[in-house]
């Protein structure tokens, strides 16, 4: 029963948000600050995560390929294609589930338990329009940018790791990467990042918006926000791969 209740409340929150999405003036200022907090400020951590993912992927792939029949360029193909299709989006999604999801859930939860949301409502503001919509839209808009940062830094990390360990030259790496580069893979990654942005921000907003029970409740909401974001990022990644690939 609890599950259906949760789904119903989540749907209702989303419905409220979509209904009031046209009231741009209300949340314009919030939207830009959220975009900076969600997107621009996350670029650093996402780039670092992507860089090391690519580097590790290259080293592990060259470690696993011992056959002389497999050309070195395959390492580049595997690293770059894995980054573009799956890892850039999912790694940044998981990192931001912690970074962005926790922040959103804590903010909204705190406002909820300190009754600021009730105050907004009593002043005539639509709290969903004011608090939820800018955060979700910021997530949807900024995640593709984060995806680009993660993918580019991942491939750069792969190239540098290959160069440093001497397992694959830049030329070989790029040859393989180009051989297996298909524009649809990029489109797929971008679609994924849109979905992840929506999943992480909307789940975190929901958890924070309906938090209850003081400081402990806020902590609980934050935990659930990050955990559920991670799970749903992985789940939606699986569903998208099953549907679109």
């Amino acid at each position: 029963m609890q599950l259906f209740l949760e789904i119903g409340r989540y749907s209702r929150l989303l419905y409220e948000a979509i209904r009031s999405a046209s009231e741009f003036k209300t949340y314009r200022k919030n939207l830009f600050s959220e975009m900076v907090k969600t997107g621009t400020d996350s670029l650093g951590i996402v780039s670092v995560a992507g860089f090391f993912t690519g580097a590790v992927l290259t080293i592990q792939t060259s470690y696993q390929f011992t056959s002389a029949l497999v050309p070195k360029s395959t390492i580049g193909a595997i690293t770059s294609q894995s980054m573009i299709i799956e890892l850039a989006a999912v790694i940044s999604g998981l990192v931001l589930a912690g970074r962005v999801g926790a922040r959103i859930a804590t903010e909204l939860g705190n406002m909820r338990v300190s009754e600021q949301i009730d105050a907004l409502e009593s002043m005539g503001f639509n709290s969903v329009t004011f608090l939820v919509i800018p955060r979700v839209i910021a997530g949807i808009l900024m995640f593709p940018i984060i995806y680009v940062a993660a993918a580019v830094s991942g491939i750069v990390g792969g190239v540098l790791a290959g160069l440093m360990t001497g397992s694959v030259t830049v030329h070989e790496f790029m040859e393989g990467a180009r051989l297996y580069f298909f524009p649809w893979d990029v489109a797929f990654g971008v679609i994924k990042s849109f979905v992840f942005g929506f999943v992480i921000t909307s789940i975190s907003c929901y958890q924070g918006y309906f938090a209850s029970g003081g400081a402990e409740g806020v902590g609980y909401a934050t935990t659930r926000a990050t955990v559920l974001s991670c799970i749903y990022v992985l789940l939606s990644s699986f569903l998208l791969a099953a549907i679109l690939l």
């Binding site: 680009v148 993918a151 491939i155 180009r178 524009p183 990029v186």
Partner: peptide, 27 residues
């Protein structure tokens, strides 16, 4: 300002994305 930050971020991302795409397509 936040708008400027976002503007710079988006422009840089689009440029990097475009350049990366062209590089990968070897154009």
């Amino acid at each position: 300002g936040n708008e400027l930050k976002i503007g710079i971020t988006i422009v840089v991302a689009v440029l990097v994305g475009f350049a990366g795409f062209r590089i990968m397509k070897d154009s």
